Simulated scan of single mutants.
Amino acid sequence: MFENLLSLLGQVKTYQTPLPEADAQHAMGALLVRAAKADQKILFEEIQIIDQVLAQRFDLNPIEAAKMRASCEKLEAEMPDTVEMTGIIKDAISATEKEATLSALWAVVYADGIKHVEEDELLHQIEAVLGISSKRAKELQIAARG
């Protein structure tokens, strides 16, 4: 009987979703995921913020936002270069949207209540690629901290 169970488990196939297109929306979502993972762990609070940002930014319901986040998680894992990911959105969004994106990234980083050096470094790298001045980026960071 035990052998039958093992043979059944060995036949289980995993379902793989295709990699989403690296468009501006998915690249932004992937950056949100990368910000959440910068401290080597992703917490429920960070996932909630990511889903809220995606829902608000792209007019999605909660289930659609969660599905998009899952696609963005896959894209984030496949795109190791943060500069390349940020570059995808750089030319596709306005200056106001760039600032909103940076604010959303800071909100994700602060969701766990702890500021980590890795998160700080990542977001400063992203702000530079987006072309947001250090002064304005600091203002957005302070506002996101609340």
Rank of each mutant, 00 (worst) to 15 (best):
E64D: 08
E64L: 07
E64W: 04
E64F: 01
E64G: 11
A65H: 04
A65M: 03
A66I: 09
A66W: 11
A66G: 05
A66F: 08
A66P: 05
A66D: 04
K67N: 12
K67E: 12
K67L: 11
K67P: 14
K67G: 09
K67D: 14
M68P: 05
M68S: 14
M68H: 11
R69Y: 07
R69A: 05
A70M: 15
A70W: 10
A70L: 05
A70K: 15
S71A: 09
S71Y: 08
S71V: 09
S71Q: 05
S71C: 13
S71K: 15
C72E: 12
C72T: 14
C72I: 12
C72S: 10
C72W: 12
E73F: 13
E73W: 14
E73C: 07
K74M: 13
K74G: 07
L75K: 00
L75A: 00
E76C: 15
E76N: 11
E76H: 08
A77E: 05
A77C: 15
E78V: 10
E78N: 11
E78R: 15
E78A: 10
E78Q: 14
M79A: 13
M79F: 11
P80V: 15
P80I: 15
D81Y: 11
D81V: 03
T82Y: 09
T82D: 06
T82K: 08
T82I: 11
T82H: 02
T82L: 12
V83C: 12
V83R: 11
V83Q: 14
E84D: 05
E84F: 12
E84C: 06
M85Y: 00
T86W: 01
T86N: 07
T86H: 01
T86Q: 04
T86A: 10
T86Y: 00
T86M: 06
G87I: 01
G87C: 03
I88M: 04
I88P: 02
I88A: 02
I89G: 07
I89V: 11
I89K: 06
K90P: 04
D91E: 09
D91R: 09
A92F: 09
A92G: 08
I93G: 10
I93F: 10
I93Y: 01
I93W: 04
I93A: 01
S94D: 11
S94H: 02
A95S: 11
A95W: 10
A95E: 12
A95P: 12
A95T: 07
A95M: 13
T96A: 13
T96Y: 09
E97T: 02
E97S: 03
E97D: 03
E97L: 01
K98S: 01
K98W: 02
K98Q: 02
E99D: 04
E99M: 05
E99I: 00
E99Q: 07
A100E: 13
A100H: 07
A100N: 14
T101N: 07
T101F: 06
T101K: 03
T101P: 02
L102Q: 01
L102C: 00
L102V: 00
S103M: 08
A104N: 10
A104V: 06
A104S: 10
A104Y: 06
L105E: 04
L105S: 06
W106Q: 02
W106V: 03
W106K: 07
A107C: 15
A107D: 13
A107W: 08
A107G: 14
V109H: 03
V109T: 06
V109I: 08
V109M: 06
Y110A: 09
Y110T: 08
Y110G: 05
A111V: 06
A111I: 03
A111N: 04
